[in-house]
Nucleic acid binder design. Sequence first.
DNA 1: TCTCTTTTAAGAGTCACTCTCATTTGCCAC
DNA 2: GTGGCAAATGAGAGTGACTCTTAAAAGAGA
Lengths: 221, 221
Amino acid sequence: MPDNDVMSPRTSDVVPSSPSGPAVTAKGGLRERKKAQTRQAIRNAAYRLFAEHGYDATPVDRIAAEADVSPSTVFRYFPTKEDIVLTDEYDEVMADMLRARPADEAPLQSLRHVMHQQLGALLKDPEGQLEMVQREELVRDVPAIRARAHESMSETGRLLGGIIAERTGRPSDDLEVRVFTAAVFGVIHEATMFWVDHGRREDLVPLLDRALALLRRGLEF
Amino acid sequence: MPDNDVMSPRTSDVVPSSPSGPAVTAKGGLRERKKAQTRQAIRNAAYRLFAEHGYDATPVDRIAAEADVSPSTVFRYFPTKEDIVLTDEYDEVMADMLRARPADEAPLQSLRHVMHQQLGALLKDPEGQLEMVQREELVRDVPAIRARAHESMSETGRLLGGIIAERTGRPSDDLEVRVFTAAVFGVIHEATMFWVDHGRREDLVPLLDRALALLRRGLEF
DNA sequence: TCTCTTTTAAGAGTCACTCTCATTTGCCAC
DNA sequence: GTGGCAAATGAGAGTGACTCTTAAAAGAGA
Protein backbone atom coordinates (compact mmCIF):
# COMPACT_ATOMS: atom_id res chain seq x y z
CA MET A 1 0.00 0.00 0.00
CA PRO A 2 2.00 3.02 -1.21
CA ASP A 3 1.43 6.46 0.26
CA ASN A 4 0.21 8.84 -2.34
CA ASP A 5 2.28 11.98 -2.33
CA VAL A 6 1.70 13.74 -5.54
CA MET A 7 1.70 17.20 -4.08
CA SER A 8 4.12 19.97 -3.23
CA PRO A 9 6.55 20.10 -6.08
CA ARG A 10 7.57 23.42 -4.52
CA THR A 11 8.99 24.55 -7.79
CA SER A 12 8.05 24.37 -11.41
CA ASP A 13 10.17 22.27 -13.71
CA VAL A 14 12.55 25.14 -14.40
CA VAL A 15 14.71 24.96 -11.31
CA PRO A 16 17.17 22.09 -11.68
CA SER A 17 17.76 20.73 -8.20
CA SER A 18 15.75 20.92 -4.99
CA PRO A 19 17.80 20.65 -1.80
CA SER A 20 14.88 19.10 0.11
CA GLY A 21 13.85 16.18 -2.06
CA PRO A 22 15.31 12.78 -1.14
CA ALA A 23 17.02 12.18 -4.47
CA VAL A 24 13.69 11.71 -6.16
CA THR A 25 12.89 10.45 -9.60
CA ALA A 26 13.97 12.35 -12.65
CA LYS A 27 12.14 15.51 -13.60
CA GLY A 28 11.85 15.14 -17.34
CA GLY A 29 9.66 12.05 -17.52
CA LEU A 30 6.23 12.09 -19.03
CA ARG A 31 4.75 11.39 -15.60
CA GLU A 32 6.30 14.47 -14.06
CA ARG A 33 5.28 16.62 -16.96
CA LYS A 34 1.70 15.45 -16.72
CA LYS A 35 1.61 16.12 -13.01
CA ALA A 36 2.81 19.67 -13.45
CA GLN A 37 0.29 20.06 -16.21
CA THR A 38 -2.60 18.78 -14.13
CA ARG A 39 -1.57 20.98 -11.25
CA GLN A 40 -1.56 24.02 -13.46
CA ALA A 41 -4.87 23.05 -15.08
CA ILE A 42 -6.54 22.88 -11.69
CA ARG A 43 -5.09 26.18 -10.64
CA ASN A 44 -6.07 27.91 -13.85
CA ALA A 45 -9.60 26.57 -13.68
CA ALA A 46 -9.87 27.70 -10.08
CA TYR A 47 -8.63 31.23 -10.76
CA ARG A 48 -10.96 31.55 -13.70
CA LEU A 49 -14.00 30.40 -11.73
CA PHE A 50 -13.08 32.43 -8.66
CA ALA A 51 -12.84 35.55 -10.78
CA GLU A 52 -16.17 34.84 -12.41
CA HIS A 53 -18.32 33.58 -9.54
CA GLY A 54 -16.34 34.32 -6.39
CA TYR A 55 -14.45 32.01 -4.10
CA ASP A 56 -17.23 30.87 -1.82
CA ALA A 57 -19.66 30.33 -4.67
CA THR A 58 -17.26 27.99 -6.45
CA PRO A 59 -17.44 24.39 -5.21
CA VAL A 60 -14.39 22.22 -5.61
CA ASP A 61 -16.45 19.85 -7.74
CA ARG A 62 -16.93 22.67 -10.19
CA ILE A 63 -13.22 23.33 -10.35
CA ALA A 64 -12.59 19.64 -10.90
CA ALA A 65 -15.08 19.52 -13.73
CA GLU A 66 -13.57 22.61 -15.33
CA ALA A 67 -10.07 21.16 -15.07
CA ASP A 68 -11.35 17.83 -16.33
CA VAL A 69 -10.22 15.78 -13.38
CA SER A 70 -12.10 14.06 -10.59
CA PRO A 71 -12.77 15.88 -7.32
CA SER A 72 -10.54 13.47 -5.46
CA THR A 73 -7.69 14.38 -7.75
CA VAL A 74 -8.03 18.03 -6.81
CA PHE A 75 -7.55 17.14 -3.16
CA ARG A 76 -4.66 14.91 -4.06
CA TYR A 77 -2.86 17.92 -5.51
CA PHE A 78 -4.02 20.54 -3.02
CA PRO A 79 -4.76 19.54 0.57
CA THR A 80 -7.41 22.23 0.92
CA LYS A 81 -9.32 24.54 -1.37
CA GLU A 82 -7.36 27.43 0.07
CA ASP A 83 -4.10 25.85 -0.95
CA ILE A 84 -5.07 26.16 -4.59
CA VAL A 85 -4.53 29.87 -4.09
CA LEU A 86 -1.76 29.90 -1.53
CA THR A 87 1.35 28.56 -3.13
CA ASP A 88 4.42 28.76 -1.02
CA GLU A 89 6.69 27.76 -3.82
CA TYR A 90 8.80 30.83 -3.20
CA ASP A 91 9.96 29.93 0.28
CA GLU A 92 12.93 27.84 -0.70
CA VAL A 93 13.95 30.34 -3.33
CA MET A 94 13.98 33.11 -0.78
CA ALA A 95 15.88 30.94 1.65
CA ASP A 96 18.59 30.47 -0.96
CA MET A 97 18.68 34.18 -1.66
CA LEU A 98 19.09 34.88 2.04
CA ARG A 99 21.90 32.37 2.40
CA ALA A 100 23.67 34.15 -0.43
CA ARG A 101 23.78 37.47 1.45
CA PRO A 102 27.02 38.46 3.20
CA ALA A 103 27.10 37.09 6.74
CA ASP A 104 27.90 40.41 8.37
CA GLU A 105 25.01 42.31 6.78
CA ALA A 106 22.33 43.55 9.16
CA PRO A 107 19.43 41.06 9.08
CA LEU A 108 16.90 43.74 8.20
CA GLN A 109 18.99 44.73 5.20
CA SER A 110 19.37 41.15 4.10
CA LEU A 111 15.65 40.60 4.12
CA ARG A 112 15.10 43.84 2.26
CA HIS A 113 17.43 42.71 -0.48
CA VAL A 114 15.78 39.30 -0.63
CA MET A 115 12.39 40.94 -1.01
CA HIS A 116 13.66 43.12 -3.80
CA GLN A 117 15.10 40.18 -5.66
CA GLN A 118 12.02 38.07 -5.20
CA LEU A 119 9.64 40.80 -6.26
CA GLY A 120 11.84 41.70 -9.18
CA ALA A 121 11.71 38.13 -10.45
CA LEU A 122 7.99 37.91 -9.88
CA LEU A 123 7.04 41.19 -11.51
CA LYS A 124 9.29 40.61 -14.49
CA ASP A 125 6.98 38.45 -16.56
CA PRO A 126 3.33 39.50 -16.94
CA GLU A 127 2.32 35.92 -16.24
CA GLY A 128 3.59 35.90 -12.68
CA GLN A 129 2.47 39.46 -12.14
CA LEU A 130 -1.12 38.61 -13.03
CA GLU A 131 -1.17 35.58 -10.81
CA MET A 132 0.18 37.62 -7.93
CA VAL A 133 -2.48 40.26 -8.38
CA GLN A 134 -5.24 37.68 -8.49
CA ARG A 135 -3.88 35.99 -5.42
CA GLU A 136 -3.57 39.18 -3.41
CA GLU A 137 -7.08 40.21 -4.28
CA LEU A 138 -8.38 36.90 -3.01
CA VAL A 139 -6.32 37.43 0.12
CA ARG A 140 -7.97 40.80 0.54
CA ASP A 141 -11.51 39.59 -0.10
CA VAL A 142 -11.77 36.11 1.38
CA PRO A 143 -11.32 35.88 5.15
CA ALA A 144 -10.38 32.21 5.10
CA ILE A 145 -7.64 32.88 2.59
CA ARG A 146 -6.42 35.96 4.38
CA ALA A 147 -6.08 33.97 7.57
CA ARG A 148 -4.15 31.25 5.81
CA ALA A 149 -1.95 33.80 4.06
CA HIS A 150 -0.97 35.16 7.43
CA GLU A 151 -0.10 31.68 8.62
CA SER A 152 1.89 31.07 5.50
CA MET A 153 3.84 34.26 6.13
CA SER A 154 4.64 33.05 9.62
CA GLU A 155 6.01 29.83 8.25
CA THR A 156 8.19 31.68 5.80
CA GLY A 157 9.34 33.79 8.70
CA ARG A 158 10.22 30.73 10.71
CA LEU A 159 12.21 29.28 7.83
CA LEU A 160 14.18 32.44 7.17
CA GLY A 161 14.50 33.07 10.89
CA GLY A 162 16.34 29.78 11.19
CA ILE A 163 18.88 30.96 8.67
CA ILE A 164 19.36 34.28 10.43
CA ALA A 165 19.70 32.57 13.78
CA GLU A 166 22.41 30.36 12.38
CA ARG A 167 24.20 33.31 10.87
CA THR A 168 24.17 35.31 14.09
CA GLY A 169 25.06 32.33 16.24
CA ARG A 170 21.80 32.29 18.17
CA PRO A 171 19.55 29.37 19.01
CA SER A 172 17.01 28.81 16.29
CA ASP A 173 14.05 29.79 18.41
CA ASP A 174 15.65 32.76 20.06
CA LEU A 175 13.10 35.36 21.12
CA GLU A 176 14.83 38.19 19.31
CA VAL A 177 15.03 36.27 16.07
CA ARG A 178 11.41 35.25 16.21
CA VAL A 179 10.27 38.75 17.03
CA PHE A 180 12.43 40.13 14.28
CA THR A 181 10.96 37.93 11.56
CA ALA A 182 7.43 38.34 12.88
CA ALA A 183 7.83 42.10 12.63
CA VAL A 184 9.37 42.06 9.19
CA PHE A 185 6.91 39.68 7.60
CA GLY A 186 3.93 41.19 9.34
CA VAL A 187 4.99 44.53 7.95
CA ILE A 188 5.58 43.17 4.46
CA HIS A 189 2.13 41.64 4.45
CA GLU A 190 0.54 44.84 5.65
CA ALA A 191 2.30 46.93 3.05
CA THR A 192 1.20 44.50 0.36
CA MET A 193 -2.39 44.73 1.58
CA PHE A 194 -2.11 48.51 1.51
CA TRP A 195 -0.96 48.28 -2.06
CA VAL A 196 -3.90 46.08 -3.04
CA ASP A 197 -6.39 48.13 -1.04
CA HIS A 198 -5.38 51.21 -2.98
CA GLY A 199 -5.92 49.62 -6.34
CA ARG A 200 -2.18 49.13 -6.96
CA ARG A 201 -1.84 52.72 -8.08
CA GLU A 202 1.57 53.11 -6.47
CA ASP A 203 4.50 50.80 -7.03
CA LEU A 204 4.81 48.05 -4.47
CA VAL A 205 8.56 48.25 -4.02
CA PRO A 206 8.69 51.84 -2.72
CA LEU A 207 5.82 51.04 -0.38
CA LEU A 208 7.76 48.13 1.03
CA ASP A 209 10.80 50.32 1.43
CA ARG A 210 8.81 52.91 3.34
CA ALA A 211 7.44 50.18 5.57
CA LEU A 212 10.84 48.67 6.29
CA ALA A 213 12.33 52.12 6.82
CA LEU A 214 9.73 52.76 9.49
CA LEU A 215 10.77 49.55 11.18
CA ARG A 216 14.41 50.51 11.05
CA ARG A 217 13.79 53.82 12.73
CA GLY A 218 12.04 52.15 15.61
CA LEU A 219 8.49 52.91 14.47
CA GLU A 220 8.85 56.63 15.11
CA PHE A 221 6.50 58.62 12.92
CA MET B 1 -39.65 38.28 10.10
CA PRO B 2 -37.12 39.37 12.70
CA ASP B 3 -33.42 38.78 12.18
CA ASN B 4 -31.97 36.65 14.87
CA ASP B 5 -29.01 38.38 16.44
CA VAL B 6 -28.30 36.74 19.72
CA MET B 7 -24.57 36.82 19.39
CA SER B 8 -21.64 39.08 20.12
CA PRO B 9 -22.33 40.61 23.48
CA ARG B 10 -18.68 41.66 23.30
CA THR B 11 -18.63 42.02 27.06
CA SER B 12 -20.01 40.12 29.98
CA ASP B 13 -22.74 41.76 32.03
CA VAL B 14 -20.22 43.52 34.25
CA VAL B 15 -19.34 46.48 32.09
CA PRO B 16 -22.16 49.03 32.33
CA SER B 17 -22.34 50.80 28.99
CA SER B 18 -21.22 49.81 25.52
CA PRO B 19 -20.48 52.73 23.17
CA SER B 20 -21.41 50.69 20.11
CA GLY B 21 -24.84 49.30 20.94
CA PRO B 22 -27.85 51.20 19.57
CA ALA B 23 -29.49 51.86 22.93
CA VAL B 24 -30.43 48.21 23.24
CA THR B 25 -32.67 46.50 25.75
CA ALA B 26 -31.80 46.43 29.43
CA LYS B 27 -29.13 44.08 30.67
CA GLY B 28 -30.66 42.82 33.90
CA GLY B 29 -33.64 40.92 32.50
CA LEU B 30 -34.01 37.20 32.90
CA ARG B 31 -33.60 36.80 29.17
CA GLU B 32 -30.22 38.50 29.10
CA ARG B 33 -29.04 36.52 32.06
CA LYS B 34 -30.03 33.26 30.45
CA LYS B 35 -28.23 34.19 27.28
CA ALA B 36 -25.00 34.93 29.09
CA GLN B 37 -25.44 31.69 30.97
CA THR B 38 -25.98 29.62 27.84
CA ARG B 39 -23.00 31.26 26.18
CA GLN B 40 -20.79 30.39 29.09
CA ALA B 41 -22.15 26.86 29.32
CA ILE B 42 -21.25 26.24 25.69
CA ARG B 43 -17.80 27.67 26.14
CA ASN B 44 -17.13 25.67 29.28
CA ALA B 45 -18.31 22.45 27.70
CA ALA B 46 -16.13 23.14 24.69
CA TYR B 47 -12.99 23.84 26.68
CA ARG B 48 -13.55 20.75 28.77
CA LEU B 49 -14.01 18.52 25.75
CA PHE B 50 -11.15 20.09 23.83
CA ALA B 51 -8.83 19.47 26.76
CA GLU B 52 -9.97 15.89 27.04
CA HIS B 53 -10.25 14.74 23.44
CA GLY B 54 -8.60 17.45 21.36
CA TYR B 55 -10.13 20.12 19.16
CA ASP B 56 -10.51 18.19 15.92
CA ALA B 57 -11.85 15.10 17.65
CA THR B 58 -14.65 17.07 19.28
CA PRO B 59 -17.68 17.55 17.02
CA VAL B 60 -19.90 20.52 17.64
CA ASP B 61 -22.80 18.15 18.25
CA ARG B 62 -20.89 16.75 21.18
CA ILE B 63 -20.34 20.21 22.61
CA ALA B 64 -24.02 20.94 22.19
CA ALA B 65 -24.99 17.77 24.00
CA GLU B 66 -22.56 18.50 26.81
CA ALA B 67 -23.89 22.03 27.18
CA ASP B 68 -27.43 20.72 26.94
CA VAL B 69 -28.48 22.80 23.98
CA SER B 70 -29.22 21.94 20.37
CA PRO B 71 -26.47 22.10 17.75
CA SER B 72 -28.20 24.97 16.01
CA THR B 73 -28.08 26.96 19.22
CA VAL B 74 -24.32 26.61 19.35
CA PHE B 75 -24.06 28.19 15.93
CA ARG B 76 -26.47 30.91 16.95
CA TYR B 77 -24.08 31.95 19.69
CA PHE B 78 -20.81 31.31 17.85
CA PRO B 79 -20.67 31.72 14.10
CA THR B 80 -17.97 29.06 13.79
CA LYS B 81 -16.46 26.40 16.00
CA GLU B 82 -13.28 28.45 16.11
CA ASP B 83 -15.14 31.41 17.55
CA ILE B 84 -15.94 29.41 20.65
CA VAL B 85 -12.27 29.75 21.46
CA LEU B 86 -11.48 33.14 19.97
CA THR B 87 -13.23 35.79 21.97
CA ASP B 88 -12.40 39.29 21.02
CA GLU B 89 -14.23 40.74 23.96
CA TYR B 90 -11.12 42.67 24.96
CA ASP B 91 -10.92 44.86 21.88
CA GLU B 92 -13.22 47.61 23.04
CA VAL B 93 -11.65 47.59 26.47
CA MET B 94 -8.23 48.11 24.96
CA ALA B 95 -9.58 50.83 22.71
CA ASP B 96 -10.84 52.69 25.76
CA MET B 97 -7.51 52.25 27.49
CA LEU B 98 -5.72 53.64 24.45
CA ARG B 99 -8.02 56.64 24.25
CA ALA B 100 -7.19 57.37 27.88
CA ARG B 101 -3.47 57.73 27.17
CA PRO B 102 -2.01 61.24 26.84
CA ALA B 103 -2.23 62.47 23.26
CA ASP B 104 1.43 63.39 22.97
CA GLU B 105 2.77 60.03 24.09
CA ALA B 106 4.69 58.03 21.49
CA PRO B 107 2.30 55.47 19.96
CA LEU B 108 4.60 52.57 20.78
CA GLN B 109 4.64 53.61 24.41
CA SER B 110 0.88 53.96 24.49
CA LEU B 111 0.39 50.47 23.21
CA ARG B 112 2.91 49.12 25.64
CA HIS B 113 0.98 50.65 28.51
CA VAL B 114 -2.30 49.34 27.17
CA MET B 115 -0.86 45.86 26.95
CA HIS B 116 0.40 46.07 30.51
CA GLN B 117 -2.98 47.17 31.79
CA GLN B 118 -4.84 44.55 29.83
CA LEU B 119 -2.54 41.74 30.86
CA GLY B 120 -2.59 42.91 34.45
CA ALA B 121 -6.36 42.73 34.54
CA LEU B 122 -6.38 39.37 32.81
CA LEU B 123 -3.76 37.71 34.96
CA LYS B 124 -5.22 39.05 38.18
CA ASP B 125 -7.89 36.44 38.73
CA PRO B 126 -7.01 32.76 38.28
CA GLU B 127 -10.23 32.32 36.30
CA GLY B 128 -9.15 34.56 33.46
CA GLN B 129 -5.58 33.34 33.63
CA LEU B 130 -6.64 29.75 33.16
CA GLU B 131 -8.86 30.59 30.23
CA MET B 132 -6.04 32.52 28.60
CA VAL B 133 -3.64 29.63 29.00
CA GLN B 134 -6.14 27.19 27.52
CA ARG B 135 -6.81 29.50 24.63
CA GLU B 136 -3.17 30.11 23.83
CA GLU B 137 -2.42 26.41 23.89
CA LEU B 138 -5.18 25.81 21.39
CA VAL B 139 -3.73 28.63 19.31
CA ARG B 140 -0.39 26.88 19.41
CA ASP B 141 -1.72 23.44 18.58
CA VAL B 142 -4.58 23.92 16.13
CA PRO B 143 -3.66 25.46 12.79
CA ALA B 144 -7.18 26.64 12.05
CA ILE B 145 -7.32 28.46 15.35
CA ARG B 146 -3.85 29.89 14.97
CA ALA B 147 -4.78 31.32 11.61
CA ARG B 148 -7.92 32.88 12.99
CA ALA B 149 -6.03 34.25 15.98
CA HIS B 150 -3.72 36.04 13.61
CA GLU B 151 -6.67 37.51 11.79
CA SER B 152 -8.22 38.58 15.03
CA MET B 153 -4.99 40.33 15.96
CA SER B 154 -5.11 42.21 12.69
CA GLU B 155 -8.59 43.41 13.41
CA THR B 156 -7.59 44.61 16.84
CA GLY B 157 -4.71 46.37 15.15
CA ARG B 158 -7.01 48.06 12.70
CA LEU B 159 -9.27 49.24 15.50
CA LEU B 160 -6.47 50.65 17.61
CA GLY B 161 -4.75 51.97 14.52
CA GLY B 162 -7.79 54.11 13.85
CA ILE B 163 -7.45 55.70 17.25
CA ILE B 164 -3.76 56.38 16.75
CA ALA B 165 -4.37 57.82 13.32
CA GLU B 166 -6.92 60.19 14.76
CA ARG B 167 -4.57 61.21 17.53
CA THR B 168 -1.70 61.94 15.17
CA GLY B 169 -3.88 63.67 12.63
CA ARG B 170 -3.32 61.14 9.89
CA PRO B 171 -5.84 59.48 7.61
CA SER B 172 -7.19 56.31 9.13
CA ASP B 173 -5.59 54.03 6.59
CA ASP B 174 -2.27 55.77 6.43
CA LEU B 175 0.54 53.41 5.47
CA GLU B 176 2.69 54.29 8.44
CA VAL B 177 -0.12 53.72 10.90
CA ARG B 178 -1.03 50.40 9.39
CA VAL B 179 2.56 49.24 9.30
CA PHE B 180 3.03 50.40 12.86
CA THR B 181 0.10 48.39 14.24
CA ALA B 182 0.93 45.38 12.10
CA ALA B 183 4.42 45.35 13.53
CA VAL B 184 3.34 45.83 17.12
CA PHE B 185 0.60 43.22 17.13
CA GLY B 186 2.58 40.76 15.09
CA VAL B 187 5.33 41.08 17.62
CA ILE B 188 2.99 40.75 20.59
CA HIS B 189 1.55 37.61 19.10
CA GLU B 190 4.97 36.15 18.46
CA ALA B 191 6.17 36.89 21.97
CA THR B 192 3.05 35.27 23.37
CA MET B 193 3.64 32.20 21.25
CA PHE B 194 7.23 32.11 22.47
CA TRP B 195 5.91 32.19 26.01
CA VAL B 196 3.53 29.30 25.37
CA ASP B 197 6.10 27.33 23.39
CA HIS B 198 8.45 27.47 26.35
CA GLY B 199 5.92 26.12 28.78
CA ARG B 200 5.23 29.54 30.33
CA ARG B 201 8.31 29.21 32.47
CA GLU B 202 9.17 32.89 32.17
CA ASP B 203 6.78 35.73 32.91
CA LEU B 204 4.95 37.01 29.88
CA VAL B 205 5.25 40.70 30.67
CA PRO B 206 9.06 40.88 30.56
CA LEU B 207 9.03 38.90 27.33
CA LEU B 208 6.66 41.42 25.80
CA ASP B 209 8.87 44.23 26.99
CA ARG B 210 11.92 42.66 25.41
CA ALA B 211 9.99 42.25 22.17
CA LEU B 212 8.76 45.82 22.13
CA ALA B 213 12.19 47.10 23.09
CA LEU B 214 13.62 45.33 20.06
CA LEU B 215 11.06 47.10 17.91
CA ARG B 216 11.93 50.44 19.42
CA ARG B 217 15.59 50.06 18.68
CA GLY B 218 14.89 49.38 15.04
CA LEU B 219 15.31 45.60 15.22
CA GLU B 220 19.03 45.80 15.80
CA PHE B 221 20.29 42.76 17.65
C1' DT C 1 -54.21 35.70 31.66
C1' DC C 2 -53.51 36.93 26.87
C1' DT C 3 -50.56 38.66 23.17
C1' DC C 4 -46.17 39.78 21.08
C1' DT C 5 -41.54 38.90 20.32
C1' DT C 6 -37.47 36.44 21.02
C1' DT C 7 -35.20 32.11 21.51
C1' DT C 8 -34.97 27.37 20.74
C1' DA C 9 -35.13 22.59 18.66
C1' DA C 10 -35.59 19.74 14.75
C1' DG C 11 -34.49 18.41 10.35
C1' DA C 12 -33.13 18.74 5.68
C1' DG C 13 -29.54 20.29 2.64
C1' DT C 14 -24.72 21.93 0.97
C1' DC C 15 -19.99 21.51 0.76
C1' DA C 16 -15.16 20.60 2.23
C1' DC C 17 -12.56 16.90 3.13
C1' DT C 18 -11.19 11.68 4.14
C1' DC C 19 -10.73 6.83 3.12
C1' DT C 20 -11.04 2.79 0.48
C1' DC C 21 -10.87 0.15 -3.59
C1' DA C 22 -10.82 -0.92 -8.29
C1' DT C 23 -8.97 0.74 -12.72
C1' DT C 24 -5.82 2.96 -15.57
C1' DT C 25 -1.26 4.50 -17.07
C1' DG C 26 3.48 5.72 -17.44
C1' DC C 27 7.87 3.13 -16.46
C1' DC C 28 11.35 -0.34 -16.93
C1' DA C 29 13.29 -4.66 -17.52
C1' DC C 30 13.46 -8.40 -20.64
C1' DG D 1 7.00 -5.14 -28.18
C1' DT D 2 5.40 -7.19 -23.86
C1' DG D 3 4.61 -8.17 -19.09
C1' DG D 4 5.06 -6.81 -14.39
C1' DC D 5 5.27 -2.88 -11.13
C1' DA D 6 4.41 1.30 -8.87
C1' DA D 7 2.21 5.51 -9.23
C1' DA D 8 -1.93 8.17 -10.50
C1' DT D 9 -6.78 8.41 -11.16
C1' DG D 10 -11.86 7.87 -10.54
C1' DA D 11 -15.79 6.44 -8.08
C1' DG D 12 -18.34 6.23 -4.03
C1' DA D 13 -19.41 6.18 0.70
C1' DG D 14 -18.85 8.64 5.04
C1' DT D 15 -17.94 12.56 8.43
C1' DG D 16 -18.49 17.01 10.11
C1' DA D 17 -19.06 22.13 9.82
C1' DC D 18 -22.30 25.23 8.68
C1' DT D 19 -27.02 27.19 6.56
C1' DC D 20 -31.92 27.72 6.21
C1' DT D 21 -36.60 26.94 7.22
C1' DT D 22 -40.31 25.99 10.24
C1' DA D 23 -42.81 25.10 14.27
C1' DA D 24 -42.81 24.91 19.27
C1' DA D 25 -41.40 27.01 23.75
C1' DA D 26 -40.62 30.80 26.80
C1' DG D 27 -39.72 35.64 28.63
C1' DA D 28 -41.75 40.54 28.45
C1' DG D 29 -45.45 43.53 28.92
C1' DA D 30 -50.41 44.79 29.08
